[in-house]
Design a protein around this nucleic acid. Structure first.
Lengths: 349, 349
DNA sequence: ACCCATGATGTTTACGTAAACATCAGCCAC
DNA sequence: GTGGCTGATGTTTACGTAAACATCATGGGT
């Protein structure tokens, strides 16, 4: 009778060849296999070929767990994000993954469903057991401090979208510069002042865009109109737009992101205020769809790819050289002028 | 003189306590620490507390590499995506990550920059060395076959957006059902026929939406107008829209995604064709912004969260039970009726 | 002819964990 | 009281890799 395999036995054996198997087949020691596998010099060409042949025949793949254990590093970066709802986060994540791959690092995703203290703490505590050498946090960090305490000390942390430059290394888009550009563009067209449709209070990015808007107006000697707040969504932009449409003296609006600008455009259209003839609208992000809005949206272009690239560079510098550097790196923006901005029909001042 | 630390020594020692350290401090064997760490019963309450105290004092964290090596599994799922450009892929990915986390699995991201055979092959070969138990592929799979051959045999593969049901397990949105619903909605409003703005040729999702559109028209005894193709982008929708605006007999368009619908709306607006009075437009996906288009877009809602959840469930079933099942699971869609569709002003037929 | 540097390869060991097996005290049944 | 059973804990071992060290030819220099 044939030997039967256990029905509910523990785990079926990995059908994977190990170095020892390869070594046996090739008639060499497992150390020589290791040398070939890692591309060390000092292996006879003939021997190397034999080993390679044996690897191929057995379908040998190095076991990354054993490697990580031996090397003491995982070649993996963990990324914590508060959902992937915003285009910006996603594009940054994508750039991080791509850059990391180019450096031979993998990226492990740690989604935090709800941005509560508990949830963030939970993500970090899952992280503790996780196979990562470093962590990049893409989210507002005011919930972060309590959580990071729980991180193993060797894990490097890097943050996007934060004012935590003193405590962490931060890479981010130059929110202030971008906002200033937006405001100055509108003022330069002759608008008397610029209204602002801001993002949610708990976002540092939103906060900085709002601050810069105020500062740019103040510098030009204009009085900032009352701040209107949305939550990044197009829907909230629509609601805000209904308010703004009622303001007859409003000729220029700077929306803190493109989605809200989209909702804004819809509200203005519904209320019969033409863009850009009656009201100029400018956005932030330059999402791919922005050029297809009605009308095509003038907006501040963010270089997410660059942000992601810098994140990986910085965090790997930390991992590899134990670089203790703190501080903030800003990535410049670029104004993309389309058709939603124009001089006011009755110039201000 | 103080002993100096090596300057360019190999890697600085992990400042992490091991089980042995904890065991020493607690005055027990490391096996007992292991038992406590893994929550086994059969440890004296008093002993357990001592061990826990020692763990806390030393800041002990289990080493996941050693664990993975011992257990023979990584508790990690790899996800291969062809960029994160499309909303659908991103939302699916997010749901996968969330579901996986709930099951105690991590998700490792494997972006493929360009969908060439070489790139895909490259991603898979990186994957070979990677610490994953299973792989979920979110991309068109006609490039897949050659690549999967290189996968270690124990890695389970699951595919989204594919017609590869015979070879792989597939989870996907019911593209055909959704498209049929869209077409029937428009026909039901009284439109004589429905034009279609399809996605790129190399996308199976696009292909299926197009096929279902044709089938639904055929079933209703209508002749399908010539197919117009875009590439998913709003810009391509705009270009297609300019063409369609010239077709005076076109009163209803089914766009294969919301972004193209957005561009379409802009083109129709520019050419003075009112939506929905002159032309009804329906999209696919129900992206968050769809309700803020001009006019708000009627569209086919996809349940990405459910797709992601099912992916994780299915792939874990394979991992845990070696479930060899093949075949396709379809997730139903839901029609969201907004303002971009209405009966034709001069009813057809 | 001899020494030693050099290159090629083999042997030992350790990484941290957890399964398998071993030990040992206490206790109940007869 | 003795045998065996149970529960609590310790000891051994193996997972696959790669650094450190050991071995052993070969060959050039003197």
């Amino acid at each position: 009778m044939a030997e039967r395999t256990p029905v509910k036995g523990p785990r079926r054996p990995r059908a994977t060849a190990s170095m020892a198997d390869v070594a046996r087949l090739a008639g060499v020691s497992s150390q020589t296999v290791s040398r070939v596998s890692n591309g060390y010099a000092g292996v006879n060409e003939e021997t190397r070929e034999q080993v390679l042949a044996a690897m191929k025949e057995l379908g040998y793949r190095p076991n990354s767990a054993a490697r990580a254990l031996k090397r003491g590093e995982f070649r993996t970066i963990g990324v914590i994000t508060f959902s992937l709802s915003s285009t910006g986060n996603v594009r940054t994540l994508e750039a991080i993954a791509t850059s990391a791959a180019a450096e031979g690092y993998a990226v492990t995703l740690l989604p935090v469903a709800v941005p509560t203290q508990d949830e963030v703490r939970g993500a970090f505590s899952r992280l503790e057991e996780l196979a990562v050498d470093a962590v990049i946090v893409i989210m507002e960090v005011h919930l972060l401090d309590a959580a990071t305490i729980m991180l193993p000390p060797y894990v490097q942390v890097l943050v996007v979208d934060s004012d935590a430059g003193e405590h962490y290394t931060v890479v981010d888009t130059d929110q202030a510069g971008g906002s200033r550009t937006a405001v100055e563009h509108l003022l330069g067209l002759g608008h008397h002042t610029v209204w602002h449709l801001g993002g949610p209070e708990d976002s540092f990015a939103a906060q900085r865009r709002t601050d810069a808007w105020r500062a740019a107006l103040a510098e030009a000697g204009r009085t900032p109109p009352p701040l209107i707040r949305g939550d990044w969504s197009a829907e909230s932009g629509y609601r805000a737009g209904l308010e703004l449409a009622a303001q007859q003296d409003c000729t220029a609006v700077f929306a803190a992101n493109d989605q809200m600008a989209l909702g804004l455009l819809r509200a203005l259209h519904e209320r019969g205020r033409r863009v850009p003839e009656d009201v100029s609208v400018i956005g932030f992000d330059d999402i791919p769809e922005a050029g297809s809005f009605l009308p095509p949206l003038t907006t501040v272009h963010q270089d997410f790819a660059e942000v992601g690239r810098l994140c990986v560079q910085a965090v790997l510098r930390k991992v590899r050289q134990d670089d203790p550097e703190r501080g903030t790196t800003l990535v410049p923006t670029r104004l993309v002028i389309r058709e939603s901005t124009a001089p006011p029909s009755s110039p201000g001042r």
